[in-house]
């Protein structure tokens, strides 16, 4: 009996001892495990918040309300100072109804920027079968949430839909539909913003904000402006010029902070 009590006392001491060691003695592995970047994809309108279902004035004086705004973001990577990149995640289908925030564990150090695809890269697009993915995968039949064309297979990279009043009449109902469904390989865009120093401190979470300036998708201040009164619909097929303009503007509207 005495020997059992002695054994219990020794074991308890060892347990307490080892617990104390863990609390005080954080290993390099522990630090790395706690070193993270948190990337938030957010939408803005003229520098302020942008929300779906709210009405904004665009550059042409149209009152617009975006009801649906979704995009595939692929191969999200952070770029090291030496130019090499670290893949953080392969595919997201982002619904900009809400900010999209993702957290990754990475090595501490200095990084130079981030890089991602707007859309689904060619190798995963037209000849891929959504039915081969599990339901929770963003490229699956269920996970693609309608962002897949079935008659001309491939993913819809960006969907931007809503209503506008293009008459300039105060208080008029928003009756003019706009609908941009951009997809197919030629309309995939690779976004990168380099020369943006990102210092990731060991053991801490570093926040990165990817801002999509929705107003600038429609108004670039140049020839690529999109006036919803005249250029309101493209499902890529049917108006490829407008599709290219939209996705180019989308790409150009993004800033990283």
């Amino acid at each position: 009996m005495h020997s059992r009590i002695a054994s219990f006392a020794i074991l308890s001491s060892l347990f307490i001892f080892s617990s104390c060691r863990n609390a005080d003695d954080t290993t390099p592995e522990d630090v790395i495990a706690e070193t993270k970047v948190q990337i938030t994809f957010d939408t803005q309108w003229e520098g302020g918040d942008f929300n779906l279902q709210e009405v904004y004035f665009d550059n042409f004086g149209n009152r617009i309300r975006v009801d649906s705004f979704k995009s595939y973001i692929s191969m999200l990577s952070i770029v090291k100072e030496d130019g090499s990149e670290v893949l953080l995640h392969d595919f997201y289908l982002m619904d900009f109804l809400n900010p999209n925030t993702y957290t990754f564990t990475i090595e501490p150090g200095d990084y130079d920027g981030i890089r991602f695809g707007i859309g689904v890269p060619q190798d995963y697009n037209k000849d891929e079968d959504p039915a081969q993915y599990p339901n929770d995968h963003p490229l699956s039949v269920a996970g693609s949430q309608g962002m897949f064309w079935h008659w001309n297979t491939g993913y819809i990279f960006v969907k931007f839909e809503g209503k506008a009043d293009t008459t300039g009449t105060e208080g008029a109902e928003l009756l003019h539909s706009f609908s941009f469904h951009i997809g197919d390989d030629p309309y995939f865009r690779s976004f990168e913003q380099l020369d943006t120093p990102i210092h990731v401190e060991a053991g801490l979470t570093t926040a990165i904000s990817v801002n999509i300036h929705v107003d600038q998708i429609l108004a670039t201040g140049g020839a690529d402006d999109i006036d919803l009164a005249t250029d309101a619909i493209t499902h890529t097929s049917g108006n490829t010029v407008l599709a290219a303009t939209f996705v180019n503007n989308f790409d150009a509207s993004i800033t990283v902070e």
Partner: peptide, 15 residues
């Protein structure tokens, strides 16, 4: 499909 946009019979079932 008549415009040839679907590469396999498996995928065609979705259309």
């Amino acid at each position: 499909m008549m415009e040839g946009g679907v590469p396999t019979l498996e995928l065609q079932a979705l259309a």
